[in-house]
Design a protein around this nucleic acid. Structure first.
Length: 649
RNA sequence: GCUGGAAUAACUCAGUUGGUAGAGUACCUCACUCGUAAUGAGGAAGUCGAGGGUUCAAGUCCCUUUUCCAGCUCCA
């Protein structure tokens, strides 16, 4: 007998050799039926796992993340089985579970059309009805490779060979006529997969390398119950309603124009206003924290980028004016970053250690010739504006200055409401990067990374490691944000650079009279303004905090003969610095309110005869609350408080 | 750059096997002068993204191209 510790520290005795599935059954048929996988002593594994010693056992259902992953992983096998039945010549690559479902990569002659996905879905449902048990078996490496060769699965053979180097037995999973190389874990049977939706069919490179053959990737999601699938699809629909690319256009923050070009959104007055407000705020706060504002050119001769290394590393990503290859003629390029421009400020004269840290910052417009398929609304564009700073510091100032950058970034992100959804990524180099991306010596890199690690650990920041995600000149702390569809991008980055100062000959004279090289921190304080606006539109579903709303208050007279009174109130608000308009149209009040609500105007002031007599305004907030009548002065005070506090809803 | 989908009035979308381009909203005009999410009537509005081709005839079929969307790759 073995002692098995269950949830809430309940201990139960079982016959040694019992499977986790049978243990679950003895705990209750309900649990057994909904069980997906289990955790034995903290490790996620199959319900097939045999328990032969005292252990902790946790049965996981679809409600847990690991349960979902197993459920979706098994669904990906059902997908592969269906594809094999309908397209026998299809070759299989990989088919994992992901955060929002699963995918499987196939090598087929022609990508599947939406109609073909329907057929595949129908076949999957048939397989589920057939109710195969999922069986696991192990083979020694050479036999495993042989089996896959016999199955004529070249991608699987490649994967298997890599695993077989370890010399361990290779696991396979089998359901009906279908067998797949797989580490698992999987459900016990295909039967629980009641509701399936294949969501997309796209291209994906084998092993994620664009030099490799492109495969056909089918994405999908599945649930134990049809109602859960419906709920999931409804949630996706609701996410679409927050999509900045939709509401940003509808609410007239930006638009795009065919003949302007990809990745070059046109900011409409509302979008321009929000970005102006963000910029002014960021510049003011930065200067109050000891930053000095610079204003440097938007383009330079190629010579500048040659010194910085950008010419060699990123020429393809730059907009070059002139013939890049003709060295006899002058050639310019629009700037893709501010670094080498801002360094000229430091280089303007000889610098003393007393002047450091020198914190330079600039509201900087950058140009990057992104590949044509990369552009996305305001999130990924070819021209954008960023608060880009370079702190030129003595080595002994690194920790404090880095922390200062962190605090500043956190303050900005928190104020605009995005911090709570941010994650942190410590982006490191890959010494073996095949395209030779990184400059500098291993010693310099290890030193910079060790310094950053020490700082991050001292702050107690939770972060993940981004291997091979560093800049070419140094490691980064990237603050990441996910859009409504779960796609992640960097919103803020703070980088340690121990290389570029030398390239530009940036020395300071130290206490001992010696010339020394400073360190440079590259940092953004609030990510690129366009991207930040996009995330804010999504986060607030268009209802930006009042201090950032292009229109903060709308005055609405009940009838046209109250127009004068309404204008009077408008001018009082204007005098108080509130952004206000008056709706003088001869429309019903319900109609005016509906429009203002749809435009997310924070406050609506209704003016009727009653208000005029009493000298008040009737205040309605966009949160669908009628706040009743109050003197105009009281409303102004309330509104100013909300604006000045940068309060969020 | 690659794979797939899409583009019809300002917006959201119909438009059958190729046969006279439609609706709702918005816009303009008029009437109504209104109490917290849509007053009524009328009017105007489209080179069917662009270029080429097939055809007696193309929004519809074919080719090229631009832009938008999803994914891959990339992201200083």
């Amino acid at each position: 007998m073995i002692k098995v510790t269950l949830k809430d520290d309940v201990v139960k005795e079982f016959e040694s050799g019992i499977s986790a599935a049978d243990a679950a059954k003895s705990l209750g048929m309900g649990l057994y039926k909904s069980a997906c996988v289990c955790k034995v002593d903290g490790a996620v594994c199959d319900l097939r796992t045999v328990l032969d010693k005292d252990c902790h056992l946790e049965i996981l259902t679809f409600d847990s993340n690991d349960g979902k992953k197993a459920f979706w992983h098994t669904t990906s096998h059902i997908l592969a089985q269906a594809v094999k039945r309908l397209y026998p010549s299809a070759k299989f690559a990989i088919g994992p579970a992901i955060d929002s479902g699963f995918y499987y990569d196939f090598d087929v002659e022609k990508p599947f059309s939406p109609e073909e996905l329907e057929k595949i879905t129908a076949e999957m449902k048939k397989i589920v009805k057939e109710g195969f048990e999922v069986e696991k078996f192990m083979l020694p490496p050479d036999e495993a490779v042989k089996l896959l060769e016999d199955m004529d699965e070249p991608y699987k053979v490649e994967l298997c060979r890599e695993h077989s180097d370890k010399g361990e037995d290779i696991s396979f999973y089998k359901q009906g006529e279908f067998t797949d190389l797989c580490a698992g874990p999987h459900l016990m049977s295909v039967s629980p997969v009641k509701a399936i939706k294949l969501t997309a069919c796209t291209g994906a490179y084998w092993r994620g390398d664009s030099k490799n053959h492109q495969l056909c990737r089918v994405y999908g999601v599945s649930f134990p119950k049809a109602s859960q699938l419906e709920e999931h699809l409804k949630m996706l629909e609701e996410a679409k309603l927050r999509d900045h690319n939709k509401i940003g256009r509808e609410l007239e923050y930006f638009t795009t124009v065919d003949y302007v070009g990809q990745g070059l959104p046109v900011l409409l007055p509302k979008g321009a206003r929000v970005i102006q407000l963000l910029q002014r705020w960021v510049e003011d706060v930065e200067q109050s924290k000891g930053c000095q504002l610079t204003k440097t050119p938007l383009l330079a001769k190629r010579d500048l980028y040659k010194i910085s290394g950008h010419w060699d590393h990123y020429r393809d990503g730059m907009f070059v004016l002139g013939d890049a290859d003709d060295e006899t003629k002058e050639c310019f390029a629009l700037r893709p970053m501010t670094c080498p421009f801002q360094y000229q400020v430091f280089l303007n004269k000889q610098r003393s250690y007393r002047e450091l840290p020198m914190r330079l910052t600039e509201t900087s417009t950058l140009f990057r010739n992104e590949a044509s398929g990369e552009m996305h609304g305001l999130i990924r564009v070819r021209q954008f504006t960023i608060s880009e700073g370079h702190y030129i510091i003595r080595p002994d100032q690194l920790e404090e200055e880095f922390k200062g950058c962190m605090e500043l970034a956190k303050y900005f992100l928190d104020t605009v409401g995005l911090l709570e959804d941010c994650t942190f990524r410590f982006s490191q180099w890959d010494p073996a990067n095949p395209s030779n991306k990184y400059e500098g010596t291993a010693e310099q890199w290890e030193a910079a990374q060790a310094a950053m690690k020490r700082i991050l650990d001292n702050i107690g920041l939770e972060y993940e490691i981004g291997f091979d995600e560093a800049a070419f000149y140094g490691p980064k702390l990237d603050i990441q944000y996910k859009n409504v569809f779960g796609k992640e991008d960097t919103i803020v980055t703070i980088q340690i650079d121990m290389l570029l100062a030398e390239k530009f000959g940036m020395y300071y004279v130290d206490k001992d009279g010696q010339k020394k090289l400073p360190y440079i921190i590259h940092r953004t304080s609030l990510g690129c303004f366009e991207r930040t606006l996009a995330y804010m539109l999504e986060h607030f579903a268009g209802a930006l905090p009042m201090w950032l709303m292009p229109e903060q208050v709308r005055v609405m007279p009940l009838s046209e003969n109250l127009a004068d009174k309404a204008k009077e109130i408008e001018s009082k608000l204007l005098a108080a610095g509130i952004r206000v308009t008056t709706d003088l149209r001869s429309e019903k009040i319900g109609y005016k309110i509906r429009e203002a609500q749809l435009e997310k105007i924070p406050y609506m002031l209704v003016i009727g005869n009653k208000e005029v007599e009493e000298g008040t305004v009737s205040v309605r907030s966009r949160k669908n609350v009628n706040l009743g009548a109050m003197p105009v002065e009281d409303f102004i005070k309330m509104a100013k408080d909300e604006i000045d506090s940068k309060k969020r809803d």
